[in-house]
Amino acid sequence: MRLLLVEDDKQLGDGICAGLGLEGFTVDWVHDGNSAEAVLQKDRFDIVVLDLGLPQRSGIDILKDLRERGNTTPVLVLTARDTVTDRINGLDSGGDDYMTKPFDLDELNARIRALLRRSMGHVAPFVQHGPIMLDPAAHAVTVDGQAVDVSPREFVILRALLTNAGQVLSRTRLEEALYGWGTDVESNAVEVHIHHLRKKLGGSLIRTVRGVGYMVDKADS
């Protein structure tokens, strides 16, 4: 999952990036409002964590413009502004959730997972696909209740494919889920990870759509 962090506090941003990275998120980080506006107009993210008190342009303005463009990316507002009026303004401007500083990183992770579930139409805290169950909170995969050992990047790809079952995901889309800005992308990384997933979970789970990308068929209801 690709996350955009918009935060001007370097120490706090470093901590959030490290913590979310351990949770399997690919985190891209910008430090001011103008940079946030620019990347949100050209890049795609699964979720945005947005501070309100930013240099150059306020988080509220960024949020309003995002929604006016019809962009429905979930946004978690993260700010030191803790009055009821501030919370109402953040939510009414298009925020999906609101946390005040200081905060607990585990709670931030839980709220992000909840927002992602809602944005994808999932109610349960895990992703079920036939005998396969993926638990984002525990970073665990089981088949018929038996644990399957997958690497962090295999987990990211599997999660992207399962949560978008029935849709073809391009190689570029999967690379975006794996790598942030400034990270060297290995030329055949996606193919290697999918090869390993097929060996562990069965060759028929992930289909190659030639010239387009990869997909997991929807599970039988």
Rank of each mutant, 00 (worst) to 15 (best):
residue 40 L to M: 13
residue 24 G to D: 07
residue 150 V to C: 04
residue 91 L to K: 07
residue 128 Q to E: 08
residue 147 A to D: 06
residue 23 E to Y: 10
residue 64 K to Q: 11
residue 44 R to T: 15
residue 97 D to A: 14
residue 109 N to F: 13
residue 112 I to G: 05
residue 44 R to I: 13
residue 61 D to V: 15
residue 76 L to I: 09
residue 62 I to C: 06
residue 132 I to F: 06
residue 88 I to Q: 09
residue 91 L to I: 14
residue 101 K to Q: 12
residue 134 L to F: 06
residue 146 Q to S: 12
residue 87 R to A: 05
residue 20 L to T: 02
residue 23 E to D: 15
residue 107 E to G: 01
residue 30 V to T: 05
residue 131 P to I: 11
residue 62 I to Y: 10
residue 97 D to V: 15
residue 147 A to V: 15
residue 96 D to Q: 06
residue 105 L to K: 03
residue 66 L to W: 04
residue 34 N to W: 01
residue 19 G to P: 01
residue 116 L to N: 08
residue 29 W to E: 11
residue 130 G to E: 01
residue 149 D to T: 14
residue 69 R to C: 08
residue 90 G to C: 13
residue 63 L to H: 04
residue 42 K to G: 01
residue 151 S to E: 10
residue 99 M to G: 00
residue 43 D to E: 11
residue 77 V to C: 03
residue 119 S to Y: 05
residue 60 I to Y: 03
residue 134 L to P: 00
residue 60 I to F: 01
residue 143 V to N: 08
residue 92 D to Y: 07
residue 114 A to P: 04
residue 118 R to E: 14
residue 121 G to N: 04
residue 89 N to K: 14
residue 112 I to T: 06
residue 122 H to E: 15
residue 42 K to M: 12
residue 21 G to Q: 05
residue 115 L to H: 07
residue 108 L to I: 09
residue 28 D to R: 11
residue 46 D to W: 08
residue 77 V to E: 03
residue 18 A to G: 08
